[in-house]
Nucleic acid binder design. Sequence first.
DNA 1: AAAGCATTGTACCAATCGGTATAGATCAAA
DNA 2: TTTGATCTATACCGATTGGTACAATGCTTT
Lengths: 188, 188
Amino acid sequence: MARLVAERSDVLPLLGELFREHGFEGTSLALITQRTRLGKGSLYHFFPGGKEEMAAAVLADIDGWFEREIYAPLREGEPAASLAAMFANVDRYFRSGRRSCLLGAFALGVTRGRFAVTIDGYFRRWQEALASALRRNGHSGEAMELAEEVLVGIQGALVLAHARQDEGVFQRELGRLRRRCGVSVQSV
Amino acid sequence: MARLVAERSDVLPLLGELFREHGFEGTSLALITQRTRLGKGSLYHFFPGGKEEMAAAVLADIDGWFEREIYAPLREGEPAASLAAMFANVDRYFRSGRRSCLLGAFALGVTRGRFAVTIDGYFRRWQEALASALRRNGHSGEAMELAEEVLVGIQGALVLAHARQDEGVFQRELGRLRRRCGVSVQSV
DNA sequence: AAAGCATTGTACCAATCGGTATAGATCAAA
DNA sequence: TTTGATCTATACCGATTGGTACAATGCTTT
């Protein structure tokens, strides 16, 4: 039979969008086979654990991307530059608020229980890495609190941007957060 | 047959919690009959439109509560007092972040489409009412922007509080928002 | 070219899905 | 006490659910 796409990593982004749009329980295998153009055979070949393994793989993929592109630079790179890069990457990743945060969406309902460790770690490591950069960028005392404020702002902006169907919400909030962190827009 | 609870309004809070926990697609009729102790007969008697009507009724109920307890006072009441009352009511309603915002959760996925008008109106009217109170409380120029910031902060705090399973996130964010709005904690 | 693993489509499964139909039970008003 | 509306429980419907089984095909290695 035809061997077409067939890289496990190729389908992860498609699965991610599905889970974002329909949630874990709402994403049916029928939906998945349609979108990925993969039969159940292929699907269960790549993900023997079924839907749960698919979602876990997607979350790990996302977590890995953030770790590589955002957290590590914040921890180890030049603070001002990595802070600016974070905001730019966040804006790009969430497509100015048109895309939602899968981990945030899962966190709100019972789905959180299945992936609690991943979800908690994603936000905890983000906050710690961000606080580390802020501390080295002139916010010694309130770094953890300011970092929390930034994560809250991003997640809230995603919710509100979707609710109002307005990218401006996300852009404005990113602007405010940048200012609060002392990140000039030019240095992006 | 036994006529037990049988007030349409009695089951709305139960339905609300179910939709919060499982999302619209994830909330099955089996789940609903268990939690409400109502058979399908009763359910379809109260809500001939099925699941969709149940969710719509829940959303309208929530929207009505916010309109009555929060938006109207913000628009028509004494600004400082109604602002303080808003934060207190929000804290109580969302149980310090342990409860999630159904409208925010629906907004993130495809479910938004079904209830777009309600979801958009809920946040729009909240922002406008809040801006009205802020304007009369010494934030004439940036009232709409500050109001947006408050809604973003609340929604984001709900997401993060669930993700980290930490009520402190919600409490701290409410504190920050109160300060930004010039609401003293004592005046609650 | 033969073998053997990797990949794929399809048929199938029991369970559950949202929804309908309907008969039995309860109650207020006449 | 009868009547009619309201409420409730249950059986049932076709469709879909997540998942399994397996045979057919591709590709790589020998």
